[in-house]
């Protein structure tokens, strides 16, 4: 039972990354692998700054900026140099591995003796509760900002770019701009998530980004299936809840005795199944129709 609070907290902190993945994967219709680099980038930047004595809020803010920069790089590789989006993301991801090592100066940084965002506010609650509270507040703020932004003229243009680039170009919008903007926003969020996760774990590690995209996709898909996609607001809430459900699923299978080393394999299989659902559903429906005839 005492696992419930940390599980939900982790779900909240990671859901910010999942919102980032949602922006690229669903809104822009791009599978952006930059997140595998920008997640540890956020963690590395924030941790290095915390160790250097910056306040947690400043550290998270700068981590967000570096994440945005990495999104811009992928965006420019894709739009200006015409490199396919998937490959552009992979290139940035690989480059960021070196960048992250540079930022940290070593493979990992410990935050054990250092004030983090979770020890910053003088509230009389234990650390796990603090993570839950701050995670909840951060997710609410970020969800509201996203809901507002994607409802504005510029946000609507980004959404339209994903649905139909021809249409939005014919309406006078530079799709190179909207794609770069979407990637910027997405990776900024992913870096914030990385910064928060590092602080809750008490360390940043150069390898902590492995599988980020799959976790993000799992959250997006689980959320969509369980909580719907009626509107943009509905989708946003679904992604957040999806991230929490994903963490609960993981906690349950670990409790049932699955070795932690198999976690990524389990997640990959889960996502593969979820992604292939539409195909199976179509086949099932076709069979049903045949039977009905």
């Amino acid at each position: 039972m005492d696992l419930i609070i940390p599980t939900i907290s982790q779900g909240l902190l990671w859901s910010i990354m999942a919102i980032g993945v949602y922006i690229t994967f669903r809104v822009l219709d791009i599978a952006d692998l930059t997140v595998e680099g920008s997640f540890p980038l956020g963690a590395a930047t924030a941790s290095a700054l915390l160790v250097a004595g910056y306040t947690p809020i400043m550290a998270i803010f700068i981590a967000c900026i570096t994440g945005m920069l990495s999104g811009i790089i992928t965006g420019l590789l894709h739009t200006k140099l015409k490199i396919p989006a998937l490959l552009a993301g992979i290139l940035t991801m690989i480059a960021l591995y070196s960048v992250n090592l540079r930022i940290m100066g070593k493979a990992n940084i410990s935050l054990l003796q250092i004030d983090t965002i979770f020890s910053f506010f003088p509230l009389n609650v234990d650390k796990q509760m603090m993570i839950l509270i701050i995670g909840f507040i951060a997710v609410i703020i970020i969800a509201v900002i996203n809901y507002w932004f994607f409802g504005t003229e510029i946000g609507a243009a980004i959404r339209a770019t994903g649905y139909n680039p021809h249409m939005i170009r014919a309406n006078g919008v530079n799709t190179d701009m909207t794609i770069v903007l979407g990637l910027l926003l997405s990776n900024g969020l992913v870096a914030i998530s990385g910064a928060l996760v590092a602080q809750s774990n008490g360390f940043a590690d150069v390898g902590m980004g492995v599988g980020t995209i799959v976790i993000g996709l799992a959250s997006v898909i689980i959320g969509e299936v369980l909580f719907g996609t009626k509107s943009f607001r509905n989708s946003l809430i679904s992604v957040i809840l999806g991230s929490i459900v994903y963490r609960i699923v993981i906690a349950v299978v670990l409790q049932l005795g699955m070795p932690p080393n198999d976690l990524k394999l389990f997640t990959a299989v889960l996502v593969a199944l979820a992604l292939s659902m539409p195909l199976f559903q179509a086949k099932l429906n076709a069979k049903k129709r045949k039977a009905a005839n």
Binding site: F149, G151, T152, E153, I154, A156, A157, A160, I168, N171, G172, V173
Partner: peptide, 13 residues
Amino acid sequence: IASRRGKTLSLRW
């Protein structure tokens, strides 16, 4: 979107 064709987009709703 169409009503703003050719105009600079802003952060208005």
